[in-house]
Design a protein around this nucleic acid. Structure first.
Lengths: 337, 337
DNA sequence: CCGAGTCTTGCATAGGTGTGCAACGAACGC
DNA sequence: GCGTTCGTTGCACACCTATGCAAGACTCGG
């Protein structure tokens, strides 16, 4: 390993000052002539600017902290992959932090501190399960934050979600149009805004259509809890279930078919939320509301970068609408066939 | 936002020199007395050492580059989550790079350069799909590298995989014991060591038991390719299939049941490889060889850190054995019930 | 031909830490 | 009491780049 080549080495070979080299590589103004000389010398020596030194002085690391709780729900790996790719394209990099669901405030503080230590330029909080405290602390630290797939009322933080209430509404409309009479709901975690919003949109629309809900059980975005909830709703005699996300819906389908021997959608229709890749597998073939991950990620990145580059940028609340994807797990109304 | 507090501020308040502060926080020797004074002043001011400055001077960033190709196969998100958590526990952080499967050497170089720019202390290459060129370049750059779930013959690089040949062998033994007569194989990508090794172990054992294979088709770890392969093997009349990983096995199961109307394991037994969480879902209930992700990740991290801390450490090849998990997708021999 | 204005360039310094070196004091053996 | 050794501390510098400032080069209109 040879010694690391610095901007001074390049300057010496090119016959200019170190500042000239710096200016060429940081995009500042420089004459065509010197720029050429510098570039030639740089490639000859294999020079690359030292990111650490650069960050140290500019105070900008071009690193984004991505906090995520649980990658078992395939929606998040998908998002993570897109975040990494998109940030890479924008010249940023992704430092991943995992924070278990049951994390205490002390854990959250530790993660925040570590992100501060690395001087991340911005933070994406990508998990419903992450407590409000974390978001507040990020914001207090003066670092741009965007909540991804997660809202927080009145926090003033930027947030990008799908149109959860509208999505819930669509499902209600669809199930009623399908002629279902005893509709139940395995909700997403009611401690999260996504869970609450989907539930509210669903229930509001049911009411507007003159239908009562047979029962609402909190599945807490958890496999086992969803199965318990399903059991209770089946006991109550449902003929349709709206499940708060696909991850739970798979558990629900398995339980209905394998444990209870019920036919889907013959005995019970099931509708999920997310449209993760697996939802289209023939084994599940799940009717579900699509969260347009690509657009959500793109929007999140754009919002974050805007905040980074212009500290006065207003933090907005952005909802992205997604369609209901019709598949085989729920009876389809005549008019839509 | 107040100004950032530096070691000089702490030194002034504690009545010592800046070097004393540095020594206290970097674990060098210092008297109990000064250490106390420094710590008190530090907490009072809320001081934390600047990681960038520290990395700049020591040349160690305490950041690990994790290169991953495709998170659609749920084995990798699982591994990623564990890597992040485990590295965090060891005081390292995870910078994620995605490299599409069809990435060119130029793409690979770009990623390498970016990792070098950030002075990562080590690199984990966690994807079968990543070309050999990338691994070589990482190594040439003089940065510790460990291949995760991916081998490379004669490269001299450290690598951690499961015992793929032994795994393939177990499957052959199991299927033969189950009385299957027409055994086929949808292989993992034959361009990867994992794919080749599983296939080789499987075929060697079949031969040793006096069985011929009906057919071997390369599924290339790809959904669509696996379905094509399955179709050809079904046409050839198989009564059992060993599929190169779970991700493909799900596609195979769906195709067999939904498209071809076959019963599993009545008409065809299916065995996968990985034991991703989804394999235990009732909808698939897949018999499969477990890759012990937890131990694989732990081993990888340990090997990497050893290389980082002792540059002369020998890079070894480590294989971790995993059991065959018996579920409902393959006929179980009498003796094992 | 001159003055004003614009672009370019080098000098010097900042950014915050780790560490070699030398000095210093204390402890200790004789 | 003196020489030696060892642990502690401060000084100064290194790490590598970006940038304010001032001076120089250059353009252009009158």
């Amino acid at each position: 390993m040879s010694k690391r080549v610095t901007s001074f080495d390049v300057a010496a070979l090119a016959g200019v000052s170190q500042s000239a080299v710096s200016r060429v590589f940081s995009g500042a103004s420089a004459s065509k002539d010197t720029a050429d000389k510098v570039r030639r010398a740089a490639t000859k020596l294999g020079y690359r600017p030292n990111v650490l030194a650069r960050s140290l002085i500019t105070g900008r690391s071009r690193i984004i902290g991505l906090v995520v709780a649980y990658l078992g729900n395939p929606f998040y790996p998908d998002a993570l992959e897109r975040f990494s790719r998109m940030l890479q394209a924008e010249g940023y990099h992704t430092l991943v932090f995992t924070l278990a669901e049951g994390a205490t405030d002390a854990d959250a503080d530790r993660v925040i501190q570590q992100m501060l230590d690395h001087q991340v330029d911005g933070i994406v909080l990508a998990s419903v399960g992450l407590g409000d405290a974390l978001a507040r602390r990020c914001d207090t630290a003066g670092i741009p934050v965007v909540l991804f797939n997660r809202g927080q009322e009145g926090s003033g933080l930027a947030q990008v979600t799908s149109a959860n209430r509208e999505g819930g509404r669509k499902v209600a409309e669809f199930l009623v149009a399908g002629g279902h009479e005893r509709i139940g709901h395995v909700s997403g975690w009611q401690g999260s805004s996504t869970g609450r919003d989907r539930t509210r949109g669903f229930l509001d629309e049911l009411e507007a259509l003159g239908h009562a809900v047979v029962g609402v059980e909190d599945g807490r975005y958890d496999h086992a809890a969803a199965i318990d909830a399903t059991q209770r709703l089946v006991d109550a005699g449902v003929d349709a279930l709206f499940v708060g996300n696909d991850h739970m819906a798979f558990a629900v389908l398995d339980h209905l078919r394998s444990e209870l021997g019920l036919s889907v959608p013959g005995d019970v229709s099931v509708v999920g939320y997310d449209d993760v890749p697996m939802a289209s597998f023939a084994g599940y073939d799940l009717t579900t509301v699509r969260q347009p991950v690509g657009r959500m990620v793109k929007t999140t990145v754009a919002a974050l970068i805007e905040q980074i580059e212009d500290k006065t940028a207003q933090a907005g609340i952005i909802e992205i609408d997604g369609p209901l994807i019709l598949r085989g797990s729920a009876r389809i109304p005549e008019g839509l066939r």
